[in-house]
C-alpha cells in the first residue's frame, strides 16, 4: 500500500516503519497489507450513494441520518471510521443551501463511505482555496450555483467526518432506490458537484 504513495520521503518512512514492525515481531509479514486490503475492499463511494438513496426514499431514515449520522448509517451496516470509530455528520443541500467538505490541515475523509480520496481533495490548491472562495472553486468543478445559494464549507480537520446529502434530481419520482443509487456521484457526496 505504501508503495503507491506519491511522496517518496513519506513512502520511505512508512516502509522503514513496516520493516521494523515486522523485524520486531509486532506484526506478521503480510498482515499489514491484508488489513489494508480488507479495509479498502469495503470502502467505496457506492456506500455513500446507498445511504443517500435510502434517505431520498425513506423520510424517517433521512430524519435520523441528519440528527445522528453515525447511528443512522450503522443501521445499513456502515461506519465512517476505519481503524478507530469516527463520528459522522451528514449535511443536507437544499434549494437555498449548499455544503462542501474539505480538510485544510491534511486530508481527513470518510474513506469507508467514499473510498480512497481523489488526488485533488489532498491538493494544496483545493484545501487552501475552497475555504476562502468556495463559489469560484465549485465553478471550476463545473458546479455553478445560483448567486443567492448560501454556501457552508465544513473543514473536517478533527474527529468528525462529513458526508453531503445532495438534492434529489427532479423527475426521479418513479425511480427505484437502486436506480437512485446509480445517480449519486462521489463528488456530489463531497459537495463539489450537484446532481
Amino acid at each position: 500500500m505504501s508503495g503507491t504513495h506519491t511522496d517518496a520521503a513519506i513512502s520511505r518512512r512508512v516502509r522503514k516503519l513496516e520493516a521494523l514492525l515486522e523485524e520486531r515481531g509486532i506484526v506478521a509479514g503480510a498482515a499489514l497489507d491484508e488489513a489494508l486490503d480488507a479495509f479498502l475492499a469495503g470502502s467505496s463511494p457506492l456506500n455513500g450513494a446507498r445511504i443517500v438513496a435510502r434517505a431520498w426514499t425513506d423520510p424517517a431514515f433521512k430524519e435520523r441520518l441528519l440528527a445522528d449520522g453515525t447511528s443512522a448509517v450503522a443501521e445499513l451496516g456502515y461506519a465512517a471510521g476505519g481503524v478507530q470509530p469516527q463520528r459522522l455528520r451528514v449535511v443536507e443541500n437544499t434549494a437555498r443551501t449548499h455544503n462542501v467538505v474539505v480538510c485544510t490541515l491534511c486530508s481527513c475523509y470518510p474513506v469507508r463511505l467514499l473510498g480512497p480520496s481523489p488526488s485533488w481533495y489532498k491538493s494544496e490548491a483545493y484545501r487552501s482555496r475552497v475555504v476562502r472562495e468556495p463559489r469560484a472553486v465549485l465553478a471550476e468543478f463545473g458546479c455553478v450555483l445560483p448567486a443567492d445559494t448560501e454556501i457552508t464549507v465544513w473543514d473536517s480537520s478533527a474527529e468528525t467526518r462529513y458526508l453531503v446529502l445532495p438534492r434529489r434530481p427532479a423527475g426521479t419520482d418513479d425511480l427505484t432506490e437502486q436506480a437512485l443509487t446509480d445517480l449519486v456521484t462521489r463528488n456530489a457526496l463531497i459537495g463539489t458537484a450537484t446532481l
Binding site: V131, R132, E133, P134, R135, E150, I151, T152, V153, W154, D155, S156, S157, A158, E159, T160
Partner: peptide, 17 residues
Amino acid sequence: ARELWGEGDHEVVLDLW
C-alpha cells in the same frame, strides 16, 4: 467568511477543541 478573510458571503464550520 468576512470574519476569517475580510470578504465573502459563505460560512466555514470547523471542529475545535
